[in-house]
Computed example of a mutant assay.
Amino acid sequence: MILPYIRRVRNVILAALLSFVLCVSMGACGTSDGLDDAQAHVDLSDVTVDKTLAAQVSKQVSSDGVLTVGSNAVWAPAEFTGEDNQTVIGYEVDLIKAVAKVLGLKVKIQEASFSSIIPAVGSKFDVGVSGFTITAEREKTVTFVQFYSAGMSYVVAKGNPKHIEADNLCGHKVSVQVGTSEETALEDTSASCVKSGKPALDLQVYEQQTQATQAVLAGRSDVMYSDTPVSGYAVSQTGGKLQLLGDAVDVAPQGIVLAKNDKKTAQAVRGAVQKLIDSGVYMRILKAWGVQDGAISTAEINPKVK
Rank of each mutant, 00 (worst) to 15 (best):
M224R: 00
A248V: 00
P303R: 10
V178S: 13
R10W: 14
D293A: 13
G197L: 08
V145L: 06
G271I: 05
D37W: 02
T298H: 15
L105I: 09
E165K: 10
D222A: 09
N302L: 07
E111T: 15
G197S: 09
Y233L: 08
T298F: 11
L22D: 10
V127Q: 06
K263W: 02
D202G: 03
Y91E: 10
I118P: 01
E83M: 04
Q60P: 12
I6R: 06
T213I: 15
Q292N: 09
A73T: 14
Y282R: 03
N302Y: 02
L201G: 00
K306T: 07
S231T: 11
A288W: 00
F125Y: 14
F114S: 02
T184N: 10
H172F: 14
R138N: 13
T265V: 08
C29W: 13
Q208E: 14
D50S: 12
D293Y: 07
I301A: 04
N302W: 01
A120K: 13
T52A: 12
G179R: 02
V194W: 01
N302C: 07
G151Q: 00
G128M: 00
G240K: 10
G239F: 00
K306F: 04
S58N: 12
A215I: 07
F80A: 13
Q292F: 01
E187I: 10
L286M: 09
D222M: 05
K304M: 04
A259V: 05
I13L: 15
E187L: 08
Q204G: 03
T135V: 05
V155Y: 02
A215R: 05
Q214P: 00
K173V: 12
V57E: 07
A98T: 01
N168D: 14
S32N: 10
K124P: 05
